[in-house]
Design a protein around this nucleic acid. Structure first.
Lengths: 191, 191
DNA sequence: ACTATAGCGGAGGGTTGCCTCCGCTATCAA
DNA sequence: TTGATAGCGGAGGCAACCCTCCGCTATAGT
């Protein structure tokens, strides 16, 4: 349903500028913001981000008048990638499809914190993005449930919050993170 | 092991003052800090904390010269309570003892964030506190393993990081948090 | 090449938080 | 009661960050 004909909700109100140099700056800002939010959390300094992107602070504010706009742009990008990942995973057998997607979810280094810090925000745009993500992931989970692989007394919301908690936790390394995720997911498996 | 003869590591270098009014202030600061760190994370404003405690900012700094000192004092208090909780739980059957303690761990509202944000800090004092907590909790886990209730291919460190991730995650309510924790712990159960 | 203008960027004013310093006050031992 | 002093607290200097504003520069259409 909708506007661009089939991609639904993910519509950022901030638009990519027209002029070539401006577009370069826009993209550099987005990349810098992604890094900064990932490594320092949502409170990262905007001036640092601008400096990191090699542009003036004024340019940052022109493109993203409020911190939230920048956060949204980054966040929505992540969500979109997750939606695509869900489509990719759909070919696998039910349980693998689900776990593959969730590992991917956890693996996204960038904006990890932002993602879960925002999970119960009330702002409309966040709601929309979250719904998009739910829409992408829930089918994988339901399929696993129907195949008798996943417990039926667990909701997708439970699952996603569990996983996003793990996303944010501190681990020694990537391997431990994956190991722990696998363990936790074992708890979701039908016995 | 040492000095006070049997409580090991948990020794805060900050000391409770002598004079009655000073002690009152000290305790008020600690309580305010506990709240503030819990609700706003480790970055909470020290001036807010002092105001909340009803003392001047100068008093805060006299007792806790650096933010870290205050954080330590609060954090160590939490850890100590967790150690005691572990002792209390020791009477229960192996698996219940473990899960009861872990639910308790998650349930501690105060300094939730501080706890996990600090889990892989390098500072000595943090290491010491973490070790104390591990020393208190690991026996519960080992007992559950020996009783054949908990998987043997999971380490206590894995378990604790998993749980501390859930501690920090955003949940709709306490009930969901407990439910999700139970699910995740099912993954740790021996099959 | 020329020009209208989209876009740049950083100076600067405001706010908030950090931490020090020191004159004042409450406590408590004598 | 009183005096020595532990302890108080907030004014104030500093630093970081936020965001706006506007004179300058690069772009792109002609």
């Amino acid at each position: 349903m909708a506007s661009e004909q089939n991609r639904p909700v993910l519509q950022v109100d901030v638009r990519r500028p027209q002029r070539a140099d401006a577009r370069r700056n826009f993209d550099a800002l987005l990349a810098a913001a992604r890094d900064a939010f990932a490594s320092k959390g949502v409170g990262a300094s905007l001036e640092d981000i601008a400096r990191q992107a090699g542009v003036g602070i004024g340019t940052l504010y022109r493109n993203f008048p409020a911190r939230q706009d920048l956060l949204n742009a980054v966040y929505f990008g992540e969500i979109e990638e997750l939606c695509i990942a869900a489509e990719d995973a759909a070919d696998l057998p039910p349980w693998e499809a689900l776990t593959t997607w969730l590992h991917r979810f956890v693996g996204y280094a960038a904006t990890k914190r932002a993602i879960w810090e925002s999970l119960n925000r009330e702002a409309d745009s966040f709601k929309a993005a979250r719904e998009a993500m739910y829409a992408a992931g829930a089918p994988l989970f339901e399929r696993a449930q129907e195949a008798g692989e996943a417990r039926k007394d667990v909701s997708f919301d439970d699952l996603l919050r569990m996983v996003s908690g793990l996303t944010a936790a501190g681990f020694v390394d990537q391997a431990q993170r994956d190991r722990v995720l696998t363990i936790a997911l074992d708890g979701v498996r039908a016995r």
